[in-house]
Design a protein around this nucleic acid. Sequence first.
DNA 1: ATAAATTTTTAGACACGCCTAAACTTTTAT
DNA 2: ATAAAAGTTTAGGCGTGTCTAAAAATTTAT
Lengths: 218, 218
Amino acid sequence: MITLAEENYLKAILATSLNTDGKVSTNAIADEIGTSAASVSDMLKKLQDKRLVKYEKYKGVILSKRGTKKAINILRKHRLWETFLVNKLAFGWEEVHDVAEQLEHIKSEELVDRLEAFLNHPQFDPHGEPIPTKNGEIPKSNTIPLNEIKTGTKGNVMGVTLDEKTFLDYLTKLNISIGTEIEVLETISFDQSLSIKIENKKQHISNDVAKHLLIKTK
Amino acid sequence: MITLAEENYLKAILATSLNTDGKVSTNAIADEIGTSAASVSDMLKKLQDKRLVKYEKYKGVILSKRGTKKAINILRKHRLWETFLVNKLAFGWEEVHDVAEQLEHIKSEELVDRLEAFLNHPQFDPHGEPIPTKNGEIPKSNTIPLNEIKTGTKGNVMGVTLDEKTFLDYLTKLNISIGTEIEVLETISFDQSLSIKIENKKQHISNDVAKHLLIKTK
DNA sequence: ATAAATTTTTAGACACGCCTAAACTTTTAT
DNA sequence: ATAAAAGTTTAGGCGTGTCTAAAAATTTAT
């Protein structure tokens, strides 16, 4: 049996490895989870014993095949629940993260299957992030981060890659949501910040914001 | 903060006290939860410290006002989730208990409120049991257990008071579900078992089964 | 190449929730 | 009324997951 804490570690390792690619460091996991490096070390040994990760002391960790499968399944549940909360219970996209974080640990394959059907097999969650399928495939979406598109081009926001209330609240303030059309007017070479146009209004955002916005150009 | 184990104890104390009325014994709780009497003793001390129960060594325990409120709220969540699972996800009434037992511990008042609205403020769950309101009132239903109605009278099953798969499966086999009309033909004084008629078919059930069937007579 | 800084692991401790075995209360029976 | 039975609590221990402080390994800088 896999415990709640273990599930959270697997999820954190997956999330971190998606950002960095390759082996994940103890500190990176500690940051992601909000715990001490010592606790992470302890847990990595346990996950190793259960063959959920491949771990070498001082060398970092990666998910095993089994671990990846488990982690992706948790992600799948998280995103299905977020979709339920927004589409069926009318929560705002900035409100659902914490509750989904609890719901993702409910154990019942039947439940997840039925929930998915009830939601009409969505491919993307309310933040535009792909919902892994039952067999662990992650839908691709042909999008690129806003900070990587050419100056002068237009595109639509298809998703965000950060699920944090402060970030999503800021987007709302900027009038950005899924579907919003954005044109990149200028990139400031000093700090890579961007001048953009939304509904004929010029605005200015940092590179840090831009890199979490997924754009589909026309 | 109240832990998951504590919530389960409160629920168990409430359930036990509804059956027996008055103080609840350590063993009764141990049976309900499926743990040892020693563990119950430990936990009762902790619940006492948190003012969730009134407990005297060797004398039994009752829920405090705060404890009652918490326990009823868990029951409310359990029954709302069961309603969701049956009405929205098309689970059978005998399949939902275990999953609801997990879902009842999700912490979010907002979620419960919205779920209730989404389900159209149901008063009874799929087993006919009353769903406590937000302020802790438990709807009454004007029903009596089948083993207490007079021989020769007819009535309809409005609910069951036992949420166990084996019991519910047996009812299905007997062709009993919510709404079913039952006539009591005879009560055997030896063992209090009952001859009943359902859809013109004579059947025989034990008193133990009859007492868990809530009937509304015409 | 070696010292300093950073990262990671180990050691020891603690709260939680559970267990068994033994001791203690209360209830029941003679 | 007292002994036996039943019920309950205490004592001591265990696994999980966390922490801080100290030790060890690795990386970075001079």
